[in-house]
Amino acid sequence: MIRDQILIGAGFVVLFAGFMAGYTIAWWQRGRLAERVLAYVSGPETTVILGDLEARVRRSQA
């Protein structure tokens, strides 16, 4: 009985760790996507704040 509770608890810990890893990867990719979009639509040097994400983008003028 106690062994089953330990296994269930460990399963929840593993599930939570997987969720947090996926969330972190998604958040990181969101930041990279925002930088690429800003680089595409902005001028030579632009600072844009989207919520809590600040992206500084600088493009060459060539």
Rank of each mutant, 00 (worst) to 15 (best):
R3S: 14
R3G: 11
R3M: 10
Q5P: 01
Q5E: 09
Q5L: 15
I8M: 09
I8L: 15
G9A: 13
G9E: 01
A10G: 03
G11D: 09
G11I: 09
F12W: 05
V13N: 07
L15A: 15
F16M: 14
G18S: 10
G18Q: 04
F19I: 14
F19S: 11
A21R: 02
A21L: 14
G22M: 10
T24C: 02
A26K: 15
Q29P: 00
Q29C: 03
R30K: 12
R30T: 10
G31S: 08
G31Q: 12
R32I: 12
L33T: 08
L33E: 09
A34C: 01
E35G: 04
E35A: 15
E35R: 14
V37R: 03
L38R: 00
L38I: 03
A39G: 15
Y40F: 04
Y40W: 08
V41D: 08
S42I: 00
G43E: 13
G43I: 03
P44V: 08
E45H: 11
T46C: 06
T46I: 06
T47D: 02
V48Y: 01
V48E: 02
V48G: 00
L50I: 14
G51M: 03
D52M: 01
L53D: 02
R56A: 08
R56F: 09
V57I: 12
V57E: 00
V57N: 01
R59I: 08
R59T: 12
S60L: 08
S60G: 08
Q61S: 14
Q61P: 11
